[in-house]
Design a protein around this nucleic acid. Structure first.
Lengths: 192, 192
DNA sequence: ACCATCCTTGACACTGTCGTCAAGATTAAC
DNA sequence: GTTAATCTTGACGACAGTGTCAAGGATGGT
């Protein structure tokens, strides 16, 4: 058929997200996207302009999902329990798939040098929002922590999640990552 | 001149390391390497075979330098002071240059999906050795820490250094990274 | 019915990069 | 001085990926 859009945009972006997640912005080609979505390359160009435009939409979808999941996990129980759930969630998130797909944000961040300002901005926004969510949960903990301390600690926690994402790429298993997260939580928050 | 090797191998590898550090294994091209070293593409192919072979040599050089510097930093004062020097070192290391060149190991790790087994192995070796160095220093701390605990904590510290490398790519400044390192050390080790 | 609109399709040109190779040139060995 | 070895050089072919475009055709509005 010709003349009217043949595909469901939401479905295409969801599939594109999967492709980008597995291959990264840089390595995923328009041909990959066309094959995965079943939409011809020309149609994708017509609909979105270029690969980066598709990526931005896919990343927005990812960020929305991720931050919502993070919020849910963080609100389980007290701050320490919330963090444990949160780390569980991100570890499953990045080790899912075969081979494991890793963390899209981290992968994208590492390509900063060859990315557009738009892409870099999305990554920063994502990390900032995550930091704010964590700070909020930590700030409500009974410990006598100042707001500034909570913010600083939240940033450290975000940083550690990035570290786990790198370690996953380096070959550490889900089980190892879980132990690393537990050790971290015990050391940083368990005794607060 | 022709007939005998026109370049100093050590110099070429050192320059290649600089190129790879700034651009990454994937994005650095043989043309980049040829331009930076002053050695023609054909000569590089003749001498080393392919880009990856050059990278492996460059990475070995990097790993040697880095681990030596890490060892030196870690042996300043007690465990806590050593860690502080160590983090200072790696932060300067990754924020050096304009634009900052980031962390080669982390960048390489993120390309794991498209890298050869050789490359992945180097990254793992590097992280393992670093972990061992840190565990050694931590294990000697006066605190009543078991060897297993020291090993676990060392891995957490390595992971955090990877997190810092990601955050650098995300746009955080040297100053911010230093604060993040300080907060981490205080939380994890300061009260041990 | 007709027409303008808009999507699809396949082909095309272009670029960047890789890896190869034959020819040329210089050195070291004998 | 001759010869063998081997490094350098520039050109070449192959390939992958990008972005563009004209032609084709269905749809919805009038």
């Amino acid at each position: 058929m010709v003349g009217i859009r043949q595909f469901d945009e939401d479905e295409v972006i969801a599939t594109a997200l999967d492709v980008f997640w597995r291959k990264g912005l840089h390595d995923a080609t328009m041909l990959d996207l066309a094959a995965a979505t079943g939409v011809q390359r020309g149609s994708l160009y017509n609909a979105y302009g270029d690969k980066e435009a598709i990526f931005l939409r896919a990343f927005d979808r990812y960020a929305r999902q991720f931050l919502e999941a993070a919020g849910n996990a963080l609100s389980h129980g007290d701050a320490a329990a919330g963090l444990r759930h949160f780390f569980d969630m991100i570890i499953v998130n990045m080790t899912d798939g075969s081979p494991p797909r890793g963390c899209l944000t981290t992968r994208t961040a590492l390509d900063a040098a060859i990315s557009s300002a738009d892409v870099r901005q999305r990554v920063q926004d994502m990390l900032t929002r995550l930091e704010q969510q964590i700070a909020k949960v930590i700030g409500t903990a009974p410990g006598k922590r100042s707001v500034a301390d909570a913010n600083r600690l939240a940033r450290v926690i975000v940083t550690y999640t990035r570290g786990l994402a790198v370690m996953e790429r380096a070959g550490y298993t889900r089980k190892q990552l879980r132990e690393m997260a537990t050790t971290f939580i015990d050391a940083v928050v368990g005794n607060a």
